[in-house]
């Protein structure tokens, strides 16, 4: 197990290096710079002499290779640079955003697993029934929904009409402010999980070992709990892992809509303002999160299904 963990962690390093290089080069060829981005749709102006000083201060005039080498060397020591926009260390900015992002992603995934797996399971146990049809219509709708539109509808219904929850903001960081953005973010994975769980459970229900278990006189409840659930879980966990890993990146729209102070909204803002060090920091954070979750999922396979072995 430790060997597997070591190998997986070692794989993270080249992947991160590739991501760093890609993001750095992409932003180098994009038109516009942080300084021209300060124009704020014509609301601010900045004079050429100040622009020159800023370019010099931020090292934007240095050759690309030199800037890249400096960036990689600094990143290796955990220094993600200074934000062009706030002139604060990027690590400090990210530190303030990680917990709200994690909270949102965890809440969204909890919602997705609870609702999605339950619906998928119930649908698979009674294929063709009303609950199956309703669950699958819900799943397809959930997959097709725009997060932005669905979020607005949630705001409209639960905040404006029913007055149950606040429509936006972080508040004190508590559950009341978390519910609506978490549902908006979690509806996509929820739908995917419902469909995946249904397919996986149906597959296992028709397997030989389930038939054998039933023929031995094992109760249906025990068959489902002991054989079906555990075997279907491998596929479900794969989807949970992939979705969980990518949710932090997907949260961009929801975070902006609900004014949720996560990594996603920081990244979008920084992209628009060409704050390269911050964008790079955000992307690195999101990629790292994805890779770590994937590694954990790989390890989880071994625990759930002892037949799986990594070489």
């Amino acid at each position: 197990m430790l060997l597997v963990l070591g190998r997986r962690l070692a794989n993270i390093i080249p992947t991160m290096l590739a991501v760093v290089a890609l993001v750095f080069l992409l932003f180098s060829v994009l038109p516009g710079s942080f300084i021209s981005g300060m124009n704020e749709d014509g609301r601010s102006t900045i004079d050429p002499a100040v622009m020159e000083r800023m370019r010099k201060e931020m090292g934007l005039d240095d050759p690309l290779i030199e800037r890249f080498a400096k960036y990689v060397a600094a990143t290796a020591t955990g220094d993600l640079g200074i934000s062009f926009r706030t002139r604060e260390p990027v690590t400090k900015m990210l530190a303030g955003r990680i917990w709200p992002s994690l909270k949102l992603v965890l809440a969204a995934m909890t919602f997705a697993i609870l609702v999605g797996v339950t619906l998928g399971f119930l649908a698979a146990l009674k294929p063709g029934s009303l609950i199956d049809t309703a669950a699958m219509v819900g799943a397809i709708s959930g997959l097709s929904l725009s997060q932005f539109w669905f979020g607005l509808m949630l705001m409209y219904l639960f905040a404006l009409k029913l007055q149950w929850l606040p429509s936006f903001g972080y508040g004190d960081g508590g559950l009341r402010n978390l519910i609506l953005p978490a549902i908006a973010l979690g509806v996509g994975p929820m739908a995917l999980l419902a469909r995946t769980t249904r397919a996986a459970v149906l597959d296992v229900l028709n397997a030989d070992f389930v038939r054998t278990a039933r023929s031995k006189g094992m109760s249906e409840r025990r068959v489902v709990e002991w054989h079906v659930l555990r075997n279907a879980l491998v596929l479900v966990i794969t989807i949970v892992g992939l979705q969980f890993g990518s949710l932090m990146g997907q949260a961009v729209v929801v975070e902006k809509l609900f004014a949720w102070p996560g990594v996603g909204s920081l990244m979008v803002d920084s992209v628009f303002q060409r704050d390269m060090p911050t964008v790079q920091g955000c992307i690195l954070m999101i990629v790292l999160f994805f890779l770590v979750i994937n590694t954990l999922v790989d390890l989880a396979y071994v625990v759930i299904d002892p037949r799986i072995r990594y070489r």
Partner: peptide, 18 residues
């Protein structure tokens, strides 16, 4: 001073007296 960059969300929040 509350950050609200999204016009549609601002509209809901304003109508909701938030």
């Amino acid at each position: 001073v509350l950050i609200m960059a999204e016009a549609a969300a601002r509209d809901v929040a304003f109508r909701n007296k938030e």
